[in-house]
């Protein structure tokens, strides 16, 4: 049976992408965040994404504004999640924030509803442990732009049930996505490797071996990557990359994950990448 309504908790970049994807596929999306400002930014971005997405992909429908408004709800009220059949959580990569949220969600959302944990590095098993439903918790590592990505890294926690995986596969079938199922250790596959790339790229910049442009050009022009590691870090958000490295370092106690001082300095200076207009590069305001 198809899933009709999904809650998206946290409507930053990834949450906006997830809501866009749900709406484009005719699924009701209930976006929840803590401030009205975040909701307003999300509404504007989702409307823009839904409107422009058909230019990028021929398979995406052209939806009238009224239809988008029917499918999209935005609220600061977490109890709105109670009426949803699946929960996608995308709050900040901070264990205390996630822990508190999952304890509340577990009390609000009916038994049997699955939670998709969208995290860069935090263990899915650890999230499951703060709820009474570890069997219903599964990791989904959504990446930008969510509505254009046909494949998602999916993480099975220690207690994740086969039924939960089947529920996620149903949602993914509706969204035209497929899963690559991996096991649960912090950082999983993608971020355990990609954050080493990004962090070492910052060390190379810090050591003045090359400029940011040169570092990224080598990855794009020599390796054939779509984006270089510093551009990718700017897109993700330097604060998110720093927090993810800290989680990896804390999890493995391996010095290879120690955050480059230059990265931490940029975050403290408010240079967070694209979202703040400055990171390793400057970005014009739109």
């Amino acid at each position: 049976m198809n899933i009709k309504r999904v809650a998206v908790i946290g409507v930053g970049n990834i949450g906006i992408g997830a809501m866009t994807d749900l709406v484009l596929h005719g699924i009701e999306a209930v976006g929840i965040d803590v401030t009205e400002g975040a909701l307003r930014r999300a509404e504007e971005a989702i409307m823009r994404n839904v409107r422009f997405a058909p230019a990028i992909s021929k398979s995406v429908p052209k939806l009238p504004k009224t239809r988008v408004q029917e499918l999209m709800t935005l609220s600061t009220d977490l109890t709105r999640a109670a009426s949803c059949e699946f929960i996608i959580e995308n709050v900040t990569e901070n264990w205390e924030v996630k822990k508190s949220l999952y304890e509340r969600l577990d009390a609000i959302v009916p038994e049997g509803v699955c939670f998709g944990v969208n995290t860069s590095c935090i263990s899915i098993t650890q999230v499951g442990a703060v709820t009474r439903r570890p069997q219903d918790i599964i990791g989904i590592h959504l990446m930008n732009p969510v509505y254009m990505k046909p494949t998602v890294e999916v993480i099975r926690g220690f207690h994740t049930a086969a039924r939960t995986l089947e529920t996620l596969r149903t949602l993914f079938r509706q969204l035209g996505k497929q899963a690559i199922l991996v096991e649960d250790l912090p950082g999983f596959v993608s971020n355990r490797i990609s954050h080493l790339f990004m962090n070492e790229a910052v060390f190379v910049l810090q050591d003045q071996v090359a400029t940011a442009e040169q570092i990224d050009a080598i990855f794009k022009q020599c390796f054939g990557h779509t984006m270089g590691p510093l551009e990718t870090a700017d897109l993700i958000g330097l604060d998110t990359v720093m927090r993810s490295l800290d989680v990896l370092y804390e999890s493995y106690h391996d010095s290879k994950y120690r955050c480059c001082p230059l990265l931490r300095k940029l975050v403290h200076a408010g240079h967070l990448g694209r979202k703040s207009g400055k990171g390793f590069y400057n970005y014009p305001e739109i």
Binding site: F52, A55, I56, K62, N144, P145, M148, L235, I286
Partner: peptide
């Protein structure tokens, strides 16, 4: 990237006061 295509369309709308319609 496809993300930039959306940024470009948004920039054109805001800069020139025109609407990229359906």
């Amino acid at each position: 990237t496809s993300l930039f295509a959306i940024q470009l369309m948004t920039f054109i709308e805001k800069t020139y006061g025109i609407e990229v319609d359906s």
